[in-house]
Measured scan of single mutants.
Amino acid sequence: MQIFVKGLTGKTTTLEVEPSDTIENVKAKIQDKTGLPPDQQRLIFAGKQLEDGRTLSDYNIQKESTLHIVWR
């Protein structure tokens, strides 16, 4: 499925993911596209910070959802 990651600059990155992907895995995909290391990424969805060990489905993140990224 496709999801979007929007940064503070307003730039949006598209990712191809599975609902079973962990947040850690998603951060690795973001690094592949942007070069930003996972330890500098904070992902937010529906006002919650996403924890590395959880999956996208744990947070009810579905296709075409938009996550927000904040740099540490």
Rank of each mutant, 00 (worst) to 15 (best):
E51Y: 07
K29N: 04
L8R: 10
G10R: 06
I23C: 02
S65E: 06
Q31E: 08
Q62G: 12
K11V: 13
F4N: 05
D39W: 13
I44P: 00
D52F: 04
Q41I: 15
M1S: 02
R42N: 11
T22D: 03
D32C: 08
V5G: 02
F45L: 04
M1H: 04
L67D: 00
P37S: 10
T13M: 15
A28L: 15
I23A: 02
S20R: 09
S57F: 08
E16C: 10
K11G: 13
R72A: 14
E18S: 14
A46T: 05
T34M: 13
G53Q: 10
I44S: 09
D21R: 01
T66W: 09
K27M: 05
K29M: 13
F4D: 02
K29W: 04
G53H: 14
L15H: 03
I3D: 01
P37F: 07
L36W: 15
V5D: 01
G47P: 01
M1T: 03
E64L: 12
P38V: 15
I3C: 02
I3P: 01
K11Q: 12
T13W: 15
N60L: 06
V17F: 04
L36H: 07
Q40M: 12
P37M: 07
G53D: 11
Q62R: 09
G53E: 11
V70M: 10
L8K: 10
I3Y: 01
F4Y: 13
G35K: 05
I61V: 09
K27L: 06
D21N: 07
D39S: 13
T34L: 14
Q49F: 13
F4L: 06
Q2D: 05
T66V: 14
K33Q: 10
R42I: 15
G53K: 11
R72N: 14
Q41P: 03
L56V: 08
I69R: 02
R42V: 15
V17S: 02
R72Q: 14
V17G: 01
E18D: 11
A28R: 15
V5C: 03
V5Q: 01
V5A: 04
F45P: 00
T22A: 04
T55N: 05
Q2T: 15
P37V: 07
L50T: 02
V26S: 00
R42K: 12
P38G: 09
A28Y: 14
I23H: 01
G53P: 06
T66C: 05
Q2A: 07
S57P: 02
P19L: 10
G7F: 15
R54I: 05
V5T: 03
N25I: 13
L36G: 04
Q41K: 06
T34W: 15
K11H: 14
P38M: 15
N60A: 07
V70D: 08
T12N: 06
L8M: 12
Q62M: 11
Q41L: 15
G35P: 02
K11L: 13
T55L: 08
Q41M: 15
P19V: 07
T9Q: 12
Y59M: 03
M1W: 08
K48D: 05
V5M: 04
I61Y: 01
L15Q: 01
I44A: 05
L67A: 01
V70E: 13
P37T: 08
K48L: 12
P38E: 06
R54T: 06
Q41V: 15
V70Y: 13
N60K: 08
G10K: 06
N25D: 10
L8G: 08
I69C: 05
